[in-house]
Simulated scan of single mutants.
Amino acid sequence: MAYRINENECISCGACQPVCPVECISEIEGGKRKIDEATCIDCGACAGVCPVECIASVE
């Protein structure tokens, strides 16, 4: 499993990126963030800091 950012709800705050222990979150167009699901270790740190709760676990 991994986590995914809903790009339609992301507010481009960047809070998720510095808390990722494996650095699998990168900035994409418009300042939004994307998670590399192949690298994600499913720790949930990013989801815990997202102020708009747009990060969720996917199967």
Rank of each mutant, 00 (worst) to 15 (best):
I55H: 04
G44M: 04
I5T: 05
P51T: 13
A45P: 14
E37R: 15
C13Y: 03
V22G: 07
S26E: 14
P21W: 04
I25N: 01
I41Y: 03
V19A: 04
G44H: 00
G44L: 01
R33G: 00
I55L: 10
I41S: 02
A2T: 09
I28D: 03
P21N: 05
I55E: 00
C54R: 06
N8G: 11
R33H: 12
R33M: 15
S12F: 01
A38E: 15
D36V: 01
I35D: 00
E59R: 03
Y3I: 15
A56H: 14
C13D: 02
A38Q: 10
C13A: 06
R33C: 04
E9S: 12
R33L: 09
G14E: 08
E37C: 10
P21I: 05
N8E: 14
C24S: 12
D42T: 15
C16F: 00
T39P: 09
C16V: 01
K32W: 01
K32H: 04
I28L: 03
C43Y: 08
I41V: 15
A2E: 01
G44Y: 00
C16H: 01
I35T: 07
E23M: 11
E59M: 08
C13S: 10
D42P: 03
I28P: 11
G48N: 10
C10K: 01
E9W: 07
P51C: 14
I5Q: 03
D36R: 03
G44Q: 02
S57Y: 09
R4C: 09
S12Y: 00
A45M: 14
M1K: 14
E9A: 13
C16I: 02
V22E: 11
A38I: 06
T39H: 08
C10S: 04
A47D: 11
I11T: 12
S12M: 07
I25P: 01
R33S: 05
V19L: 09
V52F: 05
I5D: 01
E37T: 15
V58T: 15
I5G: 04
A2L: 05
I41W: 07
V52H: 07
E27A: 08
C20W: 02
I5H: 02
N6L: 05
Q17R: 12
E53V: 09
V52E: 04
S12I: 06
E27C: 06
V52W: 02
E29Y: 08
